[in-house]
Amino acid sequence: MNAIEFILAGMLAAATPFLLAALGEMVVERAGVLNLGVEGMMALGAVIAFIIVYHGGGHVLGFVAAGLASAILSLLFAVIALGFRANQVATGLAIGILGQGLSALFGKTYESLTVTGLPKLAVPGLSEIPVIGGLFVQDAAVWLTLAATLGIWAVFAYTKVGLVIRAIGENPKAAHAIGYPVIAIRVAAVAFGGAMAGFAGAYASVVYTPLWADGMIAGRGWIAIALVVFGTWLTGRIFLGACLFGAVSLMGLAAQATALDVPSQLLSSLPYIVTIVVLGIISADRRLLKLNGVASLGEPFER
């Protein structure tokens, strides 16, 4: 297997935690809310899923429980930031610290233990194609994530629900005047984002690298938030961005395998450096951000 085949085969799985968390955060931000606690919500989901799978509860229960736990944590954010109109940046940071703390607390006795991941399912025929065949051999969670991506795209492209969420993010006062419950819909969006971050963490800890280590999310929650900006709040572009980051994180592994004389720390920080560079390139196009950005992002809603 050469490097390109290796990257193509593994890209979607590596992209899945980024994709799940970023799509969740996209919905939250589209509704006008900035929840910076993604890293902590992912960490909490990761540990909950790991504990359940480790004790034989199975992957399905693991994912469900992870989604629930992180959704509950995100509701705490909602109560404080939306209910009490606290500063969303500070509340998100606090939720992040709390989630990471709880994750370390619950995971303490599981450090370095392992579980088995999920089997790969191949699409007959397509997976036989040379070079790109690896793209069509993925585990069930990846297939479901791709389906969810399509679903979220369709909701925003074709349904009234998508339109209402966007209206609330663009102009909450007008949406309120027409009779939409701004706060209730924002709370629902935040809970959805929390559940998605929980799934993302679960994928990281019980499928992608089925091993528990404190701090294993390693900045992926933050990269997911950056991905929402890269993707200019659009599902398709966020998908492409997540694939890029999946590929970048694999490039590190591929380069180490080829025994190139590059310090491993440089390879480990590659995703962070790429984030910084891409963030600069995309953000410099102020018109693009203005066109696609969310007008009321991070501002509390007062009637």
Partner: peptide
């Protein structure tokens, strides 16, 4: 570059 100081 107009990038978010939080993320950078």
């Amino acid at each position: 570059l107009n990038a978010s100081e939080i993320l950078v």
